[in-house]
Design a protein around this nucleic acid. Structure first.
Lengths: 208, 208
DNA sequence: CGTTACATACCGACCGGTTTGTATGCCCAA
DNA sequence: TTGGGCATACAAACCGGTCGGTATGTAACG
């Protein structure tokens, strides 16, 4: 936060560190973890190798930092839907679906999840990445499960269902949608799946 | 199918090629594509670099061959459910879910899909891989869509639904289940999702 | 049938370039 | 002046891919 010299190049280690993470996220979403080199990351961040290894012990540390940052950014994006407990929890879920559908309308970057990518590529061999990904996936699921539980209290469920199990169901569907959307180069497919997911959730409860 | 020498045959190029593909699949399921080196593949297949590049133009060619082989193996595994058109198509779908659930009970290797992994890791940068993965995912969806269409004729649908769209929904759910199952090291989760998927499909049609 | 000529299958050393990571020193703010 | 932020230079392993060579199977020809 200290800003002193207006002209000279600023030394802001926290910002530099974040620049490295941003660059990593940008590159990893495109090429995966193994496919992205430290040199490339440094270049993207306007930094040299020496500077990089000053901030991160190794490439793996950067990877976990990137996953954690992705998780924080994600919860921030979903916050609008998750945090406003004044509205009907079912409405909160609807808002969440709207946010997810909104991702498909942003042309700036593809609809992908770094956690999902990292899981597929690395979690079988790298325990640190596996744990980091599991944590983020758990977080998402917990939030959705909470909403489902709350919705269950407000609305009579049409049939019995377990909120946690259903939340994992929705998370899986979401991750799989992004996966297939990427392979088939189709945002439309993702949107269709979200529609079906929405009506699936609605169908859990009785009308009105 | 040329079969000449009845005795032991040292040189069997087709088998050698397959050995390389098998080794690739085995390693890639664990470490991904970029994470697996040609040297490693050769060692796993009991082969040398020179021999390898006699059979495949480059690493990418091997990758696409592996994806194609995975697709063929997959359709062979699902064949029992997909091909027996004598039974009720809804029953065919049930059998398919049983086959999928069966994957979670085989302790020999984790419940993962090479196409899904390849999609996440490579399809954004490598058009050949992207096309290969898209093709295999399309195949799976087409088969499921066919069954749903047939089921629609035999049973009255409870509400309107598009078989193709629903097939993509199920494919996404399946891929996402394997993804999350890997990250969370849980076969149980996959099984739960399959159960929900099964009742989702059942719920599309009227009872009886 | 036997020899020769050639194509195919495979080997393993090697190449240029890239990888992650280290050692060291400059530069600027406190 | 001192210590943290960052750059330069370099190391050592590893990468995909090439190349010369060898072993083996096959077909033509006498």
């Amino acid at each position: 936060m200290p800003k002193k010299s207006p002209t000279k190049r600023e030394r802001d280690p926290a910002a530099t560190r974040q620049r490295l993470i941003d660059a990593t996220v940008r590159l990893m979403l495109q090429q995966g973890f193994s496919g992205t080199s430290v040199d490339q990351i440094c270049k993207e961040a306007g930094m040299t190798k020496g500077g990089f290894f000053h901030h991160f012990e190794n490439k793996e540390a950067l990877g976990t930092a990137a996953v954690e940052w992705w998780g924080r950014m994600g919860t921030a994006l979903y916050a609008e839907a998750w945090q406003d407990t004044s509205v009907d929890p079912l409405e909160q879920l609807h808002r969440m679906f709207d946010i997810m559908a909104g991702f498909t309308r942003r042309d700036d970057n593809p609809v992908v999840c770094m956690v999902g990518m990292m899981s597929q590529e690395m979690s079988a061999t790298n325990p640190a990445f596996q744990a980091a990904c599991e944590k983020e996936l758990n977080l998402w699921t917990e939030n959705v499960a909470k909403l489902l539980t709350a919705a269950k209290k407000r609305h009579k469920p049409k049939t019995k269902f377990d909120p946690v199990q259903t939340a994992w169901f929705l998370n899986s569907l979401w991750q799989g949608s992004m996966l297939i959307g990427k392979a088939c180069r189709s945002r439309h497919l993702i949107r269709d799946n979200l529609k079906l997911a929405r009506s699936y959730v609605d169908g859990l409860f009785q009308a009105n």
